[in-house]
């Protein structure tokens, strides 16, 4: 469903990604693992069209999307949960969700469905987003992305800095979305946070992706992780 074909990208002249290739299938969780500065977030931005590609192509459902202007990409059905949440802080919870709903002109049903997944947000609809707790903000960032009824969900370190109960709540939603057939690309630094839910794991290092392995293989043999992450 999502295919990265040898993409090269970076900021200005500083190239970050070198020949990165990945695929994500519907109903699959691909976890992108790598250390700080390996190029995980840059990969996400390149998919969303927020960074111009130097070469290579991003294809979504077989169609090349890397030539589209950035604002057209979410409309195809790609939801993005950015690193650090990046909520519209001065807007209310309801307004943040409305922006998500507008992307694909989703209606009331979608909103109800999303609020069903995150009941805590329903109590806070008129509250400013920057007054929410960290966990609630992360829920809102996910809910906002789910409001566009994504076929593909990109999540950049969604569990960063959260307490275990919040991590568990978010993990359950991720698994539920996978079971509904959504393709999920999940970026993480911490292996244990994702190993239990990932289907496949791609390692990225210094802007190159080294290897893609089945998560089951990693679960069976922990030494593989240590070799790839070099910790």
């Amino acid at each position: 469903m999502l295919e990265l074909d040898a993409i090269n990208a970076g900021y200005g002249r500083a190239q970050i990604l070198r020949d990165v290739s990945l695929t994500v299938a519907p109903g699959e969780i691909l976890c992108l693992l790598g250390r700080n500065g390996a190029g995980k977030t840059t990969t996400m931005k390149a998919i969303m069209g927020l960074l111009p590609l130097m070469s290579g192509a991003v294809r979504f459902k077989g169609e090349p999307i890397s030539d589209l202007p950035a604002h057209r990409i979410p409309g195809l059905g790609i939801g993005y949960v950015p690193q650090g949440r990046r909520l519209f802080g001065e807007l209310t919870v309801a307004q943040n969700l409305e922006i998500g709903l507008m992307v694909r002109r989703a209606g009331r049903d979608t909103l109800e469905d999303v609020l069903g997944l995150f009941p805590r947000l329903r109590e806070r609809m008129q509250q400013r987003a920057d007054t929410l707790s960290g966990g609630e903000q992360q829920m809102l960032a996910m809910a906002r992305a789910l409001c566009l009824e994504p076929e593909l969900l990109l999540m950049d370190e969604p569990t960063e800095g959260l307490q275990p109960s919040m991590i568990e709540a978010i993990r359950q939603v991720v698994v539920l979305m996978r079971d509904r057939g959504t393709g999920i690309l999940l970026v993480e630094q911490r292996v244990d946070a994702v190993l239990s839910i990932a289907d496949r794991v791609a390692f990225i290092e210094n802007g190159r992706n080294v290897d893609t392995l089945d998560a089951s293989a990693l679960r069976a043999d922990h030494s593989l992780i240590e070799r790839h992450l070099g910790v």
Partner: peptide, 11 residues
């Protein structure tokens, strides 16, 4: 509030 995120939400 956030130009880049606005782009990522189709604005």
């Amino acid at each position: 509030l956030d130009r880049e995120t606005a782009l990522a939400f189709g604005i």
